[in-house]
Design a protein around this nucleic acid. Sequence first.
DNA 1: GTCTATAAAGGGATAGAC
DNA 2: GTCTATCCCTTTATAGAC
Lengths: 209, 209
Amino acid sequence: MTLDTAVHTHPDPIAEPRQRVLDAAELLFMERGYNAIALRDIADALGMKQASLYYHFPQGKEELYVAVAERAFARHYAGMAAALSGNATLEVRLNRVAAWFGSQPRMCLMGMVHADLPALHPEQTRSVTQSAFLGLFRPLVEAFANAQAQGEIGTAEPNMLAGAFLALLDALSIGMTMSHTPERMTMAAELINLFLNGARAGAAHTREA
Amino acid sequence: MTLDTAVHTHPDPIAEPRQRVLDAAELLFMERGYNAIALRDIADALGMKQASLYYHFPQGKEELYVAVAERAFARHYAGMAAALSGNATLEVRLNRVAAWFGSQPRMCLMGMVHADLPALHPEQTRSVTQSAFLGLFRPLVEAFANAQAQGEIGTAEPNMLAGAFLALLDALSIGMTMSHTPERMTMAAELINLFLNGARAGAAHTREA
DNA sequence: GTCTATAAAGGGATAGAC
DNA sequence: GTCTATCCCTTTATAGAC
């Protein structure tokens, strides 16, 4: 399966510099958020002047941010599909997802939903939200629903499981940034282990029964 | 136990208007982040002019933000202590924590760490981080370590458990904002149930053994 | 304690040369 | 494709009247 995604299907000579801009912008936007980053910061990272960015993204900052987000979620759509494919157990799949997520530029999902999306025009907010749903949330929901059908885990709401799992992945990248990480993948595996044991055992929202 | 915290020990006639400013600022800062909120927004919410804020917080925006954060974490310090006190099971305690957290103004912890703290001067970053640690993180770490000593849960790293639990609480408030909530506390209880089952079962970071 | 007025800086965006 | 120059709006912050 072609994991290098649908982004550069043919090495369009006009599309390549655009990717360089997106790369630099993604690092900054995803690291510190839409409001914290000035176009000037991105231009500096590229060794160019702020005004030059308007050649590549005539609509300015918001267009650039949306393009960054859409591209990132498209990449995740492919990466998640690969991570969740095949006949492996849910545990193996989730560890693949964590590995994929960790291999990507840091993305603070919670911060994005909380602070970035509200700063965009409503239509853009909708679009980016949809991409995030398709790229990250839905694949997980389906994986959990699948595992339930196989009896691998209990009957907890798949939407909740997906949300909780994404929250843990999100926290993991932050925890890594802060604490002097005791081997990233070790902690990911421990977290997944914890999560899966919970999903296997409990399930239904009744515990007083 | 006096849960109305150590904030207004004596109704200082000079401290009250300050609290009103902090209240308005907290709602906005914690809801959308440091960079997204202008002093003007806060002044508007208070029905006053932007310049007037400098009477209460002469050092300006950063001082105001830090004061908001410190006060919020001090409140959490008290609220968490109350929620985790007594002889109840860990499950009851964690549900009390979730209830407490849900009763407070929304605070996007992940977004804060990710986007707000880096925008402050290093010394302030340190101070706020410390308050967050004391108010939220450490109490949970101790609760988990305690539960482990009692054999209530397995031997997973308490730091990791606390981080994961906070991440879930964080995601819960966001999930509530987005999806048309199927009863907030129900979902909290389900999440805690899942989390606890995981903590009870697994524990050690060895699963291939 | 709050206001008006204004300085000073920052950041998004446009025009036009090269 | 990138630059310089500039416009203009927003935001932080200060000065001083009331």
